[in-house]
Design a protein around this nucleic acid. Structure first.
Lengths: 329, 329
DNA sequence: AGTATGGTGGAAAACGATTTCCTTTTTCAT
DNA sequence: ATGAAAAAGGAAATCGTTTTCCACCATACT
């Protein structure tokens, strides 16, 4: 393997000079830069990122914390898009990524987790789908030993940025559209996870709408579960005009219930997962660009690792009407 | 961060001795081992895997090559289960994993890919869903510069193991079951990707069955595409008794076509993806334990990295009848 | 006693970068 | 022409391991 040493020799300069050129440090003449770059090209030199990570705490390795299946039981593409978006962007930015799952650290303490991350020379992490109950990760964030970006939770400190869509407005928008299209007055709203950060935001959005339009609303907790949403709809759906759900999967559950009861009510979802195209009904939902959000998260992490302070980033969303796709039903 | 140096000092021995204890090398007395382990515990020492990877080519970093979406356009959970199975097992085995996507290296040469992997100190790779057309990865495998496990393709050499289910037998089994249940004689078989390794195996299985039972079979290429399967079924399905598909997603396409034509024919799939539970019909399919297969792949890679020669591993599968899950339709 | 033998433990050289100084050279104002 | 300041480049320490090789000591065998 060709190393920085070979490049230095080939270019007739010192190792440290090569390193300076590679990292765009000042105090290198234009002439030397050209010499070094020529040598780099001729030898097809690629810097060893492991060595870089070892010698410098800055050269970044980042860990992705994915909360597998919690929201939708592995039948959606959300996690995959998160991973893909993050990794692709990381490659652009020359960052090293390792992927971890919440479940791997279930019975570990936060100290153990910290040590593990340090033993991997990890200096930055991205957390997807953090629950309020997850003490370990909250502690990790609070201690600020790592640069951190939290996706879908509003946590910001000097070393932590957060990124999400405006859930409150998105829920308001999609619900308003559905209510107006169907002239509804009595809403059944099925919430997500009790301790999810997005749950509260979305509820706020609903309350905004109810207040503004003078509607009535019954709120029930569906825990992002298809089955629970079905049961709730069975029980309360009949004398409501519309069922609004905080996730597509729960919307599917609601649809099932309505079909079983043989009544029609408009249903409204949230997320825009591909599965929706397969259940054979139309509904309004909020489409999030998960890969894009994740790529942006990686970018934000990069800023943090460069010394920028934590901040809040809001990403755009779009309202869509999932199409009936000629699926068998 | 506490390093091996601290442990050595604390235990009153040399650094090299600590390393020997940690790696279970011989020529260390029981007494010393105990001293060292005590120090390790007391200091909560966790070895830095980055440093280990730098100094030893043996200490393993492995890369996962995931062929995103090719087969089923991101609506199934297969890739996610692959990743999860591999990473979880890697953690057990103390291996470092980075995840990569085929698409990231689309316009790169195999030399560039090799250099990239070496620059990451990667010594082992797992490849999922290799196509016969992928020259770059085939070259990578042939050159044997890395230890490699290929999932779903029968490639074995001194440094390469392969792992898959017995696709020939699985296709035979599931087709036979379907044919017997419905008393069919004329089969429409929709194949997968032209250049997929599993495609040939599964076709063999079908030919075995046709020969054994004296059936007739029309074979068409569906490229694992739902739409193509639909079109093929529209065109040829009418005067056949059954539509057998090399993937669940194509089976869904076939079902759509049959519904559109308003005729009934049994359909049979392959993979057992969760989505099948949402389309509202029953059918036979072959369930693969993707996470388990991937974990096994990681294990095999570990053997290879320990110096074992490449070999072929066959994993079990099960026939299932995907249930109608009270889904709206 | 003198010499193999073999089990133990340590010193030091890698691995491939980054980074801190320090020396040399250049520039420029006086 | 002179001296000070700034720019350029290099030597060497460092990061935390692994691994090779060497030194030591005890035992055993002539």
């Amino acid at each position: 393997m060709v190393s920085i040493k070979d490049v230095a020799r080939h270019a007739g300069v010192a190792i440290s000079t090569v390193s300076k050129v590679l990292n765009n440090y000042p105090n290198v003449s234009e002439e030397t830069k050209i010499k070094v770059n020529k040598a780099v090209d001729e030898l097809n030199f690629v810097p060893n990122s492991v060595a870089a990570a070892l010698s410098s705490k800055k050269a970044g390795r980042v860990a992705l914390f994915v909360n597998l299946n919690v929201q939708t039981q592995a039948i959606d593409e959300i996690d995959m898009q998160y991973i893909q978006g993050a990794i692709t962007k990381a490659m652009e930015l020359n960052l090293d990524v390792i992927t971890l799952f919440f479940s791997m650290f279930k019975d570990r303490t936060s100290e153990e987790l910290t040590r593990y991350l340090q033993s991997q020379s990890i200096t930055g992490i991205i957390i997807y789908g953090l629950s309020k109950e997850d003490k370990i990760l909250h502690k990790l964030i609070d201690e600020q030993k790592f640069k951190c970006v939290v996706v879908d939770a509003p946590i910001v400190n000097e070393n932590t940025s957060s990124i999400w869509i405006d859930n409150r407005k998105a829920q308001y928008d999609v619900a308003k559209k559905t209510v107006e299209e169907n002239n509804c007055r009595r809403i059944l709203y099925i919430q997500g996870k009790k301790n999810g950060y997005v749950t509260e935001e979305r509820l706020q959005g609903m309350e905004d709408l109810v207040k503004e339009m003078g509607l009535t609303m019954l709120v029930r907790k569906g825990e992002f579960s298809e089955l629970q949403a079905r049961n709730i709809t069975m029980r309360y759906g009949k004398n409501k005009d519309v069922v609004i759900c905080a996730s597509d999967l729960m919307a599917i559950g609601a649809m099932k219930a309505l079909t079983e009861m043989d009544i029609f009510r408009p249903v409204c979802g949230f997320d825009g997962i591909v599965l929706m195209g397969y259940v054979g009904k139309q509904m309004n939902t909020v489409r999030q660009d998960f890969a894009g959000i994740s790529a942006k998260a990686m970018e934000e992490l990069h800023y943090l690792m460069d010394g920028a302070p934590g901040r809040n980033v809001t990403m755009p969303y779009t309202l869509v009407r999932m199409k009936y796709m000629d699926i068998i039903c």
